[in-house]
Every structure is written in structure tokens, then in C-alpha cells.
């Protein structure tokens, strides 16, 4: 086994397995621990600049990466016109810098604000550092090896699909420059850390809020127990009253 196999074949599978298995175990067995762990109550102003930039920047950039994985041909077609390529690259770079500034602010806030420091765990710092490394290596990659959106569909889209379809081809990333390999490895590291850190709140994004009823009402005793019949009397077969589904009654406003 050489380094290439270890870092870009074995480790990714370990990271993926950890991300899925540990996340499921944690969310089922210890749901209390799953939380965004906001510290806005303790410090609000710096959080506004840091959190907004970090979250939106990363969400959009990750979305871009995901699009390149899912629609490589669409990306190449888009890039066929140079102006569109420049537009995409500049937007991506700007978003990355924005997110980087956000992470930097958050890191400074976590280290510098006494109240926030109290609620910081070592893992919180690890997560911020890994994100910072990811952004820095990504920016270096984008700057030094132009243009990422050109070669990504040829290199990483097949690499990722090869892993996901269990026909791994780690040799695709074997001869890439150091900074790109670092960027990729750091991604797998983030994935491995994901279920053990606050990053797990990513999978709890409450999209259901868009269509759930406003009010949530819960009955403890869903159904009245049938009255006890005297012993010896013929037992009537209980006909349970059909219970409406939780979301049925009350229309779109209440849940019961």
C-alpha cells in the first residue's frame, strides 16, 4: 500500500463510513447532543459578520462543487464562453475569500471573547481550523492552477464517482500538485470529523419547516382505553375508532 492508496482510497472510505454510521448512532442514541450550539446569546455583533459570511460562503461554494460533480457536462458547456468562465471563477474566488474572512472572524471571536471562550470545546477550534485550511488550500488551488472549473470535471468528478460506485480509482489524484492533494485530503478529514463535532448540525437543516403546520399539538393519550368488561361476559371485539393521522385534523394550521 502506498501513500496514495492510503490517503485517497482507504481514508476516504473510513471517513465516509464514520460520517454515516456515527451520525446515525449519535442522532438516534444521543439526540440531545445534536445542536447548532449557537453562542449568539453571549456575543452577537462579531457573530453577525463571521457567521453570515462563513455559512453563506461555504454553502454556495459547496453547492458549486456539488454541481460540478453532478453536472460535469453542464459546467463544461457553461465554460465554453470565456466570459462565463471568468465570471464563475471570480464569483467562486470572491465567495471563498468571503467565507475565509468569516472563519477568521469566528476564530478570533472564539479566542478573544471571554464569554464565547467559556463555551468553546477543543473540537470547536479543530473544526474552525480545518475549515480555514480548506478555504486557504482551495484559494491557492484556484489561483495557482487555473482554471479549476475547467479540469475539475475531468479529474474529480470521475474520482468521486469511482469512490461512490465502489470502483475506486485513486490514481486519478496521485500525480496532482501538493496543494490540490492537501485540499482533497482535508475534505476527507472534515468528513471524518463531521459526526464527532458540531458539524453534524448540517444534516438537521430544518427544511420541513417550509410545509409543516404552524402549530404542533400532541396528545399523550391518543386513544381512550375500551371500558373493562366484566369477566365471563362475551368479549366484544373492540372496534377501535379510526384515529386521524397527526397532520389531518385542523388543516394547515394545527397539527392534530
Amino acid at each position: 500500500m502506498n501513500w496514495n492508496t492510503l490517503l485517497f482510497l482507504v481514508f476516504p472510505y473510513v471517513a465516509l463510513a464514520l460520517a454515516v454510521v456515527v451520525s446515525v448512532i449519535r442522532m438516534r442514541g444521543r439526540p440531545f447532543s445534536v445542536s447548532a450550539q449557537s453562542s449568539q446569546l453571549l456575543e452577537s455583533r462579531k457573530l453577525y459578520f463571521g457567521s453570515t459570511a462563513m455559512h453563506w460562503g461555504l454553502v454556495l461554494i459547496l453547492g458549486g462543487h456539488l454541481l460540478a460533480v453532478l453536472l460535469p457536462k453542464g459546467l463544461l458547456l457553461w465554460n465554453a464562453v470565456p466570459l462565463r468562465l471568468y465570471l464563475l471563477e471570480i464569483t467562486g474566488l470572491a465567495l471563498a475569500l468571503w467565507a475565509g474572512v468569516g472563519v477568521w472572524i469566528l476564530l478570533a471571536r472564539r479566542l478573544g471573547d471571554a464569554r464565547v471562550r467559556v463555551v468553546s470545546t477543543p473540537m470547536d477550534y479543530v473544526v474552525l481550523l480545518l475549515l480555514l485550511v480548506s478555504i486557504v488550500t482551495g484559494v491557492i488551488t484556484a489561483g495557482a492552477y487555473r482554471f479549476g472549473s475547467y479540469w475539475f470535471p475531468a479529474v474529480f468528478t470521475p474520482y468521486l464517482w469511482s469512490l461512490l460506485t465502489l470502483q475506486p480509482r485513486p490514481e486519478l489524484v496521485a500525480d496532482l500538485p501538493f496543494w490540490i492533494q492537501f485540499h482533497v485530503f482535508n475534505f476527507w478529514l472534515l468528513l471524518a470529523v463531521f459526526p464527532f463535532s458540531r458539524l453534524i448540525h448540517v444534516v438537521t437543516v430544518p427544511l420541513g419547516y417550509l410545509w409543516r403546520p404552524w402549530q404542533v399539538v400532541i396528545w399523550l393519550r391518543r386513544q381512550r382505553r375500551p371500558r373493562a368488561t366484566p369477566p365471563g361476559a362475551p368479549q366484544p371485539t373492540p372496534t377501535p375508532k379510526p384515529q386521524p393521522a397527526l397532520q389531518d385534523k385542523g388543516g394547515s394550521y394545527g397539527s392534530d
Binding site: Y209, Q215, V216, V217, I218, W219, D256
Partner: peptide, 10 residues
């Protein structure tokens, strides 16, 4: 957003 708060019907 999570639907974590509820009202007991009883």
C-alpha cells in the same frame, strides 16, 4: 424550524 416545541392537548 425543528418543530421541537409543542402544546400538550390534554
Amino acid at each position: 424550524p425543528s418543530g421541537a416545541i409543542y402544546k400538550r392537548a390534554e
